[in-house]
Design a binder for these strands. Structure first.
Lengths: 216, 216, 216, 216
DNA sequence: GATGAATGAGATTTCATTCAT
DNA sequence: AATGAATGAAATCTCATTCAT
């Protein structure tokens, strides 16, 4: 009976914004900001156009809220990555990228947020800046930390990867844009692609790839 | 004198389509398909709205023509890359990427076409398919050819780069999307970035990076 | 009080389509399909342009709906004519034409639908076919039935009127087009015209116009 | 050599207006005034839009000229009908209607002018007035003259046909509108229809139909 | 809170008319 | 005389936003 305290109507009220954002995401991702009709958003959310305005002041506000809502889970996921490092740096990197592929490439929402930002950056420059500050920047810094850790423990040789950890991350972006552009059917991020990515990365980072053992 | 023979109006007629496409490119790149107003395109081209319709049947046709027009120089540039290989594969790759950075990352038009395609792929799926067939596909194949050539001559060790030349190309895409997203001010494709890219690539591909000599 | 229960806005919603069709009829009748501006239709209906599109998908749909709406009362009127025949055929014909003049010539709407169909038949061929099937065809058949009835009972002599009842109907069309062309001021369908029509018709149909008795 | 005096160019110049009117007629007849594009008129005439303006000041002027041009042959034909009457009135009527059917119903142009006038009478009221004055009025008066002639010579009985000769003419209009509305395929003006028309007319006009002869 | 009819500004598109050549 | 590129006003249609219920 305690659960009955929350009436269905109240429940609804609390869920509405989320439902609208969910519908808005689908429409914005497909049609872009200008190409999206609030009619379609409302229809997808199972409400009427007017209701949107009870929760969002304008189409622009709705777009901003949609992107921010999408950023949230990614940020949270990223936070999980910055755990204290220990063990071989390469092992950390493997875990790191396993995580990144799962949460930034396989996750459709994470991919689509990139499309939306790329498409609308001139209309919503703040969103891109924010995304850089909250998602991309931290991701790069985390990566840089691992590279430095690897160099410090003598596992990695000093390399430009310290200055441009982006280079290690690039295949992830590649897979991401590839799927955005050519669809899931021609996806580039299967297990083999990931393995190839890690393989080449290993070769480029390790001090003496497989030769270390040979030297002993 | 001879040039004066061609009247300004006559000359216009031949130049109009190009002028319109030029203006359309700027507007589409900034605002996307739906967000672009033909009023603005016309104003930028220094003509009136009606004139656009003398050359393009609709806004959609104009968009398609704009993208195709942008693809043309890129395709032509790419064609220049498929020259017969000789000498060290790594040298070829260096030349290759020097060229690619210049013509696909530094060239604003080439970058923006990617933005437009990413943004409008759901409205113009054919354009993305065409871009894949004419630009991306050939670029990847060219790269694959060089990798094979390097392996065949014993310069490169066999690696997943043969199956996924995309991985070598990824830093280019990264630089491209980076500039699209964060602007020219925070560009990622300076000389140092390129050098870092090539350095890591070399480490990951060469059979015995410079150590062959050192071992002697 | 009870009527106040229905809010003006609610009531509007149900009446809107009719109000729009009413306004559209006036404009289409005056200016034809292409010459009619939706602005004018809206102004006449006391609404704005956009509202029309809440009820009709396009100008063409509005035109079609307008004509169909006009056909409805005529069809219903026609149905009233097919009552079982009895008494002198000529009496039936007199009643018939009294009715037809009132409902197809005097009624401005009925006249104007003819103008609209004549003018737009090449753009809306289906409408003319429909009008033939639902209005003109039945009207002719009804007339033929009366002629046959008159012949069967020996009142009318056999004549081509059985095959072409149109000939009996022709003066009605004449009056109709006359008013459409030259305006109500020069109308051709006064009581005298009607009487003249029936008089000549009688002479042409009756077996022995009053002379049968005289001959005896 | 005398005929060579007129150069092809000059010949052209004199024929141009006629060619344009010819093309304009086809387009106006099909699409009405507002629905007709000067582009289409020009294309049909094998010239360019601009050339039309060398001969006609505006679209309205072109329409007016087109209708007037169409009226001309009809007026000329009508004039041929007003020849002095002699012989049986019914014979004159038969000749008269044979002529009228050929020149006002079978002739597509004559039919279409009626459509154009009916459709555009509110935009070009003068044209309808002119048509009445020059075509319809004279036609009715000619008919009235024949009726009076028939009454005067005792062939016709006095009837309302003297006041409303329109009634005799009505089947012609009927056939005309019928073809305009339902197309040539469902034409109503075959030989049988004409014969039926004349048959009923004869019955309604003759003093003692066929009995006059029998009485002898 | 939710609706959805209505709005009206603004978008794309059309086309009669002009005018330099 | 003829062209046809260009214009620009106006038309159809769209859609974010409002508001009475």
């Amino acid at each position: 009976m305690t659960s009955a305290r929350v009436s269905p109507r109240q429940r609804r009220k609390e869920e509405r914004p989320g439902e609208i954002l969910e519908a808005a995401f689908e429409e914005f991702a497909r049609s872009g900001f200008a190409g999206t009709k609030l009619d379609d958003v409302a229809a997808r959310a199972g409400i009427t156009k007017g209701t949107i305005y009870l929760y969002f002041a304008s189409k622009e506000e709705l777009f901003i809220a949609t992107v921010k809502e999408l950023n949230r889970p990614i940020r949270e996921n990223l936070a999980a990555l910055t755990a204290a490092a220990q063990g071989p740096a390469m092992t950390i990197l493997r875990r790191h990228f396993a995580f990144v592929y799962d949460h930034m490439v396989e996750d459709r929402r994470a991919r689509e947020v990139m499309r939306m930002l790329l498409a609308e950056v001139s209309r919503f420059p703040d969103l891109a800046a924010r995304w850089h500050a909250e998602v991309i920047g931290p991701a790069v810094e985390t990566l840089r930390g691992v590279v430095r850790y690897g160099i410090a423990r003598g596992e990695f040789r000093p390399s430009a990867a310290e200055e441009f950890p982006h280079l290690l991350f690039a295949p992830v972006m590649m897979a991401c844009t590839w799927r955005l552009m050519f669809g899931d059917a021609h996806a580039l991020d299967g297990a083999e692609y990931r393995e190839a990515h890690l393989d080449l990365m290993e070769k480029s980072l390790l001090r003496t790839p497989d030769r270390g053992a040979a030297a002993v």
